[in-house]
Design a protein around this nucleic acid. Structure first.
Lengths: 342, 342
DNA sequence: ATGAAAGCGCTAACAT
DNA sequence: ATGTTAGCGCTTTCAT
C-alpha cells in the first residue's frame, strides 16, 4: 500500500493540511516542522498521487494553442496525429486545443497567428518556429507573460522555451551519409535537394551527410539544388537537373519537396538509372520504397514529436515549471521497403 | 465545464447512484430509466472522468507477476526497463510488481515460476512464453481462473491470452535480407547463426531473410549454425566456422549468442574480412557498429514491448476485458553506427 | 502557524 | 429498484 499524505501526517503528528503545505512549499509553516515532514516523507518513500492531485485542482481546462506549418507538407500530418493523441490522453485532466495550420516558413504569418492566439487567451503554445528576429521577440515576450512554449520539430536560438522536441538534424545527415556510402559501395555522383541554405536545421542535414561522405573518394556531390520546401519548385528543378546532368545517379532529398522530385523522376522515366535517399515516411516516399526507386528513408518519429510537445507543455503548465530550454531528441530510424511503419 | 454524473442525475431526476449503475450496466435499475439516462448522457455529451474513476476504485493494488528469460540475455534488460517504467507510470493507480528472471528457454523452470506466482497470488501475468504443451496448459488454466496474461516478445499458439506484444519476426528477417542484399551489392557467402530451428519465432527470421535473399543469385547461404541462444556455444561454433570455412564473408546473427560470436571474430582477428548483420541494440553490437564490423542492426523496440505488456495487462484487468488474443506489433528500425539510440 | 472540513467526480456499501 | 452516504488522496478555505 503506497504511503499517503495521511500516513505522513500521523507519523509527524500534524494535520494533513500542514503536510500538504510543507511538501508543496506553500509557506506559512514552521521551518523546523517543514524540514521534519520533508525528511519523513522521503524516508517513508512518499510519492504524491497525481491523479488525486489532478482531481482536487481540477478547475479550468488548460488551453493549448498550436502553430504548425503543416499545409502542403504531409510530414506534419503525423505530427498533428501525435498532438491530437496527446490531447486525448489528457482529456480527463481538462485541456482544450486550438490548432492554426499555416503554409511554409513565413515569419509574418507566424506573427499574425501568434497575436491571434494571444488575444484568444492560451496557457501554452506548441510551435514550429521560423528563425526570425521578430518571431523570436514575440515568443520571448509571451514567455515573460507566463505562457509556456514548446518548439516542435524546429529549434530556434535565444528563445527561453520550455523544451525543443525534435530530431538531431546533423546526426540524421550523418546517418544518411553512411547509408549512401555503404549501399553505393563508395561509388556515386550525387545531387542534394534541400529547402534553402538559409534554413539552419536543414543545412545541418547536408553538413552531416557531407562529413561522412568525404571519407569516400569516389562519391562526388555534383549539384546542390534549393527547392524551398515547395513541391512545384522541386519538381521543376529536378526535371531541369535530369535533363542537364546525365552523370547524376543518386538523389539525396533533405526535406520537403521530395514528393515533387520523385514525380519528376517518374515523368522523365529515369527510375531505373537513379536511386533516391530520403527522409520521413510520407506517402510518396513509401510508394517509391516499394517500387525500389527509394533505397531507404530516415524516420524521425513525427508522432512522438507532436505527442511529446503537448505532454511536456502540459506538465510544465500544471507544475508551473520555469522554462528550462530542455532538448528532447527523438530517435532516428532507417526504413527500407520491408519495415515501413505506416 | 464538462458534464458530470451529477448533472445527469439532476436532469433525469434520479440519484447519482442510479446514473452510475445505468451507465455502467451494473444491473438493478429499471430498463426504461436506464435507457432514458443513457440517451440523456449522450445528448449532454457526457464523458466519464477516468481519473475520478480511478481514484474511487483505488482499493487494493493490482498485482502483476512477470516471468522473463532475461538472465544472460542483455536484450531483455531493455524490456525490463520498459516494464518498470510502465509500473512507475501506473503508480498512482495502485500496482505491485513481482519479477521472476530466468535463464534460457526451459519449460520446467517456467512452470515452476508459474506455480509460484499463482501461490503468491497475482491479478495479471507478463510472460515470455516457451512453446511447450505444459506451459500452454498451465497458462490457459490461469486464464480460466481469471488471471489476465500478456505475452511479451515471444508468441505462443493456442493460448487464450489478452495480447501478444512483440515484433513481426518474419518481417524482421525480410528487412535484414534486404539490407544484406543492398549493402553487399548482391555478392556474399553467408553463415546464419540462429538459436535453434525448433524455436518457431527465430526460424521465421531465417525464413524471412531467405525469401528476400533468394532474389540475389550470387548470395549463397553456406552454413546454418544452431547456438541455442547461448554465448559460449555461439563463441565456439563461430570459432570453428571461421577455422573451417574461409569463404564465408558475411555473418547473419538471428538472435541471442551475438555477443559470443562477435568475440570469436575478434579473437580470430577476422574483423577486416568479415561483415556482420545483427538484431537488437545490445552492448556488444553497439560496440562493433562503432568499430565497423557490424554493418547494421535491427531494433524491435524492447522498451516498448515491456512497457506495452504491462499497460495492456493493466487496462485489461481494470476494465475486466475478456481475453482478445490481440497482437500489438512493435516497429522494426534499422540502425547503423550513426543512429544508435542507447 | 496549524487544524478542521468541504469538495473534485466517481464507486460501492448500506439503507429504504 | 432507487436513494444516501462514506470515502479514494489531495487541495483549499475557513477557523483557531
Amino acid at each position: 500500500m503506497p504511503v499517503t499524505i495521511k500516513d505522513i501526517a500521523k507519523a509527524a503528528n500534524v494535520s494533513r493540511g500542514t503536510v500538504d503545505r510543507a511538501l508543496n512549499d506553500r509557506g506559512g509553516v514552521n521551518p523546523d516542522v517543514s524540514a521534519r515532514i520533508k525528511t519523513l516523507a522521503s524516508e517513508m518513500g512518499y510519492k504524491p498521487n497525481t491523479i488525486a492531485k489532478a482531481l482536487a485542482t481540477h478547475t479550468k481546462p488548460v488551453r493549448i494553442g498550436v502553430i504548425i506549418n503543416s499545409l502542403g507538407n504531409p510530414f506534419f500530418d503525423q505530427v498533428l496525429d501525435g498532438i491530437e493523441s496527446a490531447v486525448e490522453s489528457l482529456h480527463d485532466y481538462g485541456i482544450s486545443l486550438d490548432i492554426r495550420k499555416i503554409r511554409g516558413y513565413d515569419p509574418q504569418r507566424q506573427l499574425y497567428e501568434l497575436k491571434l492566439l494571444q488575444d484568444i487567451g492560451i496557457d501554452g503554445l506548441v510551435i514550429t518556429p521560423v528563425s526570425d528576429a521578430k518571431v523570436r521577440n514575440a515568443l520571448n515576450e509571451m514567455i515573460r507573460g507566463g505562457i509556456q512554449v514548446t518548439c516542435c520539430n524546429l529549434d530556434i536560438d535565444d528563445v527561453n522555451y520550455q523544451a525543443y522536441i525534435g530530431c538531431d538534424y546533423y546526426c540524421s545527415g550523418q546517418t544518411a551519409g553512411e547509408i549512401i556510402g555503404v549501399t553505393t559501395h563508395g561509388e556515386a555522383n550525387l545531387a542534394v535537394i534541400t529547402s534553402s541554405h538559409a534554413l539552419y536545421t536543414h543545412e545541418m542535414r547536408v553538413k552531416g551527410a557531407e562529413s561522412v561522405l568525404k571519407k569516400y573518394p569516389n562519391i562526388h556531390i555534383c549539384e546542390y539544388i534549393e527547392a524551398g520546401d515547395d513541391e512545384d519548385i522541386s519538381y521543376h528543378e529536378v526535371m531541369r537537373l535530369l535533363k542537364q546532368n546525365k552523370k547524376i545517379d543518386i538523389l539525396y532529398f533533405v526535406t520537403g519537396g521530395t514528393t515533387g522530385g520523385l514525380q519528376a523522376i517518374h515523368d522523365m522515366h529515369h527510375e531505373n538509372r537513379l536511386k533516391v535517399y530520403a527522409f520521413d515516411q510520407i506517402p510518396a516516399v513509401i510508394e517509391d520504397l516499394k517500387s525500389g526507386l527509394v533505397v531507404s528513408t530516415i524516420d524521425q518519429q513525427p508522432f512522438m514529436q507532436g505527442f511529446q510537445s503537448v505532454r511536456t507543455l502540459f506538465d510544465a503548465i500544471m507544475s508551473k515549471h520555469t522554462p528550462t530550454r530542455k532538448r528532447i531528441i527523438t530517435e532516428l530510424n532507417i526504413k527500407n521497403r520491408y519495415n515501413i511503419s505506416y
